[in-house]
Structure formats: C-alpha cells, structure tokens
C-alpha cells in the first residue's frame, strides 16, 4: 500500500515541491541570520587589527554583542523625516533587500547528497538555471535601486549624493565585473553555475586559467558591494552616512543586512567562479570546503576594509573606466585567442 502511495506521480511531485520549499526556507533563514555573526567577526577583526579587543563585555568575549545590537535596533524609534516621501522611504529598504536574497536561488552549495533513512537524493541548490550567472549578475545589480530610492526619498542632500554615487559606481563596475565573468564562461563553455563548478573539479580552478580575470573580478566585486576601498556611497567623511543617513531602526537594519548579504553572495560567487566551488581534498565533504573558502574570502574582504583608505571619487571613476574596463576586454581577447 505504502509502495503504491509513494510511486504515485502526484505524490512524487508533492514531495519535490516540499523539498524545494524546505530548501528555500533553510537558505533564507541561514542567509537572514548570517549578518549576526558577520558583524561580530567584522568588529572583532577591526579591533584586533587596531590592537584593541573589539566587543568584549556582552557574553564571553562579547559573543552576544550582535544579539544586543539587534534588540537595540528593533526597539529604536522608527523615524521618517518630515519632508521625506513616506511611501518610497518605507519601500526602499525592502527593494534593496529582496534582490540580495534572490541571488541565492541559483547558488550551488554542493553536489547531490543522499539523506539517510529515507534514501532521497537532494541537490544542494534550489535551482540549476542554464543561465545562472546571468541571473545572478542581473539580480545583484537590482539592489542598487533600493539604495537610489532610499537616497532620493530621504529628501536629504547627503543621502541623495550617496545614492547618486552608488548608481554611478554600480554602472561603472558592473561592466568590468560582467566582462570578467565572460572570461570564465568562455573557458568553461557554460552559463550554468553548477556546470562552472563541475568543470573546475580536480584542481582545475579558474584562478589558474584566469588570473587577470580574477583580479578584475575581485576589485570590481569590492566596488559592487560598496566595501572599502570603494565605499563612496557611505563615505562618512564627506556624506555623513551616505544613502542611509536618514534611516533608523529596522529600516536601517535592512540596509545593513543587504550589505552583509551582498558581501556573502559576492564571496560565494568568487568561490564558484574562480576557486572551484566545493572542489577540494577528499577528506572533508564538499560543502565544508565550500564554506571554508567562502569564510576565507569574507575574512579577506574584512581585512582589506581595515587596511586601506578610501579612494577619491574621481579616482574611483578612473579605475573603473580607464583601467578595469580595458583590462577586462583584454582578458576576453586573450581568453578567446587561447581557447580557440
């Protein structure tokens, strides 16, 4: 009876849907809670680089500091400026946040695993699109709308300038970023992220074949996620706090969440495109290698934040248009010549 029930096509479909739903919920929850440890790590690394200790009082070695911060942010007053556009002001953080999460729909975290006891094969990604990398780049670029709208709706000069800078920066660096990805795509011959990772298995990591592409991707990626040395949209020295100058409470938390999720997704993308995804020595499961690599890249991003000063705005534009863009075109040319 049970055999009959389990082989019913309708039931099979239901199980598939259920599995996808569970995956979506798990990924969303994990990504949603990631900024908590990341803020802690960032503050700890910052502290130790500056020969301080970082958070230390809340819990042992300050481990509960992010929770305290979260509670503080929830209970703070949610201020909407008198002259702001209330509707846009409210919706902007959501517009910024949703694409940051949507990116994770195609991110593969590992190969198929078999869940014990029920013998069901589950893939460690929500979907394997044929044009996965295109989807990721397109959706990641959407996040900037939230930032611009937030800056515009605040009706504040600093916020507007922050939003403008962000859009200009995004346009300049999105090109170089996409061209760097094209190099990878030419080597691998597929746009699917899963295929890209599979093609790199056995230490054929793309960083060995695309060193120039990797450098361009790393620099443009840093600029895409508004991290130092390219965090012009939230330049404290000249813009107060940049595009989220007028935001407080949970809306500000959403913007911060977006930034951290963008950092994670950029690191994940870098691992998938250049560091072979879940490929690694066999003694650990693939997903562990994947997470180790992602953690390392996140650490490097935080590390650079507290090492380098910020670029000037004209320098930012010069690097984007005069250096990275021609270099990425050159990279495509070289790759094309070698591949053919």
């Amino acid at each position: 009876m049970f055999e009959l029930f389990i082989s019913n096509p309708l039931v099979l479909m239901m199980i598939e849907v259920l599995v996808i739903c569970i995956k979506v919920v798990v990924v969303t929850l994990v990504v949603f809670s990631l900024p908590l440890p990341l803020t802690y790590i960032e503050r700890k690394v910052a502290g130790h680089i500056q020969v301080r200790l970082g958070p230390y009082r809340v819990g042992p070695h300050g481990i509960l500091q992010p929770l305290a911060d979260m509670i503080k942010l929830i209970f703070k007053e949610d201020i909407i400026p008198y002259k702001a556009d209330p509707w846009l002001f409210k919706i902007a953080p959501i517009i910024a946040m949703v694409p940051a999460f949507a990116v994770f729909a195609t991110i593969p975290f590992g190969e198929k695993v078999t869940i014990p006891f029920i013998d069901k094969e589950v893939t460690l990604y929500i979907s394997d699109m044929d044009t996965g990398i295109l989807y990721v780049l397109a959706i990641a670029g959407l996040s900037v709308y939230g930032i611009i709208l937030g800056g515009w709706a605040s009706n504040s000069k600093y916020a507007l300038l922050g939003g403008l800078r962000s859009s200009a920066q995004m346009i300049s660096y999105e090109l170089a970023l996409s061209f760097a990805c094209i190099g990878v795509v030419m080597v691998v011959n597929s746009l699917s992220l899963v295929d890209i990772v599979r093609a790199q298995s056995g230490w054929h990591w793309n960083i060995l074949y695309q060193p120039l592409g990797f450098v361009i991707f790393a620099i443009a990626g840093l600029a895409e996620i508004n991290r130092i040395p390219f965090d012009l949209p939230e330049d404290e020295g000249t813009l107060g706090a940049g595009y989220h100058a007028e935001y407080s409470s949970m809306r500000f938390a959403f913007f911060m969440l977006t930034e951290y999720v963008a950092m994670v997704s950029m690191s994940v993308l870098m691992v998938i495109l250049f560091f072979g995804g879940w490929d690694g020595p066999g003694f650990l499961p693939g997903i562990v290698w994947f997470l180790i690599k992602v953690a390392f890249i996140i650490y490097v991003i935080i590390w650079t934040r507290f090492t380098y000063p910020r670029y000037r705005y004209d320098q930012l534009m010069t690097i984007g248009w005069k250096i990275l863009l021609p270099l990425s075109l050159l990279n495509i040319l070289i790759t094309g010549l070698v591949v053919i």
Partner: peptide
C-alpha cells in the same frame, strides 16, 4: 605596496592588545 600593507595589518591582528580589561 597593497600586499605589504595587508601583511602589516595581519601582524597587528595577532599582536598583543593594549586594551586594559579594567574592572573585570
């Protein structure tokens, strides 16, 4: 130069802190 800068901050990451953990 950038990589040298990274190494400097890396060394500081694992150097002794100057923070005095005073009352605790």
């Amino acid at each position: 130069d950038l990589i040298q800068g990274l190494f400097i901050t890396f060394n500081y990451t694992f150097s002794k802190t100057i923070t005095l953990r005073y009352p605790d």
